[in-house]
Design a protein around this nucleic acid. Sequence first.
RNA 1: GUGGGAGUAGCUCAACUGGCAGAGCACCGGACUGUGGCUCCGGACGUUGUGGGUUCGAUUCCCAUCUCCCACCCCA
Length: 426
Amino acid sequence: MIKAVRGTRDLLPPDTALWNFVEAAARDVFRAYNFQEIRTPIFEETQLFSRSVGEETDIVSKEMFTWEDRGRAQSDKGQSLTLRPENTAGVVRAYVEHKLWERGLNKLYYIGPQFRRERPQKGRYRQFYQIGAEVIGPPTAGSESPARDAEIIELLATFLDRLGIAGWNLELNSVGCPNDRASFNEALRKALRPVVSKMCADCQRRAVTNPLRVFDCKVPEDQPIIAKLPRISQFLDEPCRKHFRELQGILNSVGVPFAINDRLVRGLDYYTRTAFEFTHGALGAQNAVLGGGRYDGLSESLGGPSAPGIGFAIGEDRLVMSLKESAEPVLRRPDVYIAPLGPGMNREAARLARELRRHDLVVELGDESFRLKKSFETATRVGAKFTLIVGENEVKADSFAVKNLETGEQVSVRRQELVARIQSDR
RNA sequence: GUGGGAGUAGCUCAACUGGCAGAGCACCGGACUGUGGCUCCGGACGUUGUGGGUUCGAUUCCCAUCUCCCACCCCA
């Protein structure tokens, strides 16, 4: 048997109703904040990701689905293509390519699948779905302002509250400018040198490859050492400090609760200044339901103009998972089950079904070969509110038996009154 | 990529130390030829994840492999 490949899955009813509910809520919220939708290709040139996300990151170094496309001519070397592992790079590429600043498009959102070749786990799939948004634009448009950061974060709080997701936590940090990060990295390496030999194997490796990640260590014995290490907050220059202070001021003003976590570091190279993460308890080890941050230099590194930006990505799979704890998906049940009874009745039933559906009623249609008992059983099973019997008697009298399956009450309704009658009792 | 657990009917799960693969729910039919839910009776249900091996005989033991779950790594 052919099965869905490792790390991918089918989303089936009734779950798809929940997914649609989440996406509809997201679109509603985006509209209120005047974001517009963008859809970028599902694969891009590999270079886009290695240059923006970062050559040394786990995503680029070992988690991308990459292949070489065939060249046009036999002799051509094909180009290297990659299924997108995240969507910010694609959006910024489109921003630069189409000069979107000239059209005043600076608030964009997307909903769609992303791909990473990781070991699957609960809440982690190789094809996963993200809902994300980006605010990006020339500095003169205010895109650098902490007001944009605050607006994005407040939007997210609104969205989660609206979905009825209780118990989320917001963690906030600033990772500074590239300069700050460089001097911090230097200081961190220096501080680690004398103590690193006493730390766990993972940390020894991190100290070499990516010192920032030492802060993620969960080994208890290492914690006293980590506590004494320098913090990024000590290395922020004055503009970055001010930016971070102002962001906190606005969040306090609008009443979005947060906690400063000066160990929060984002994995991707392009992040600057604001970094944040919303977590939810019910998700096990993969507790981050969404993350985001600022990327002031990304446009330039992709050959575009200066265009500071901030964005986020919601892990839709994880969001739906935590939503499932509280809400069961609700499918719309059929209003009417039409039971054609006897030879030739399919024709009449089809006409009636068409008529009812035109009036926005949900109709399930049986078959003239079914015995009436079977029709009623089916009507009950699919959850129809009414059964409409279409038999020879009804057609002759032009008046149809309509039975309310919840009350058991049955009446005879003339053809002209069917729609009105069913709509009013629905 | 590393370590651990699990795969048996559509679903949830049984099957002693290696001895005829089962139950509940769901599904189909009948009791009831134009009336559902409740009840009763009957039916179909299977490559025991896959491929090898040991054995008279393997769901059970061994090897390989695939998938899921848990943790690590990392992230949404």
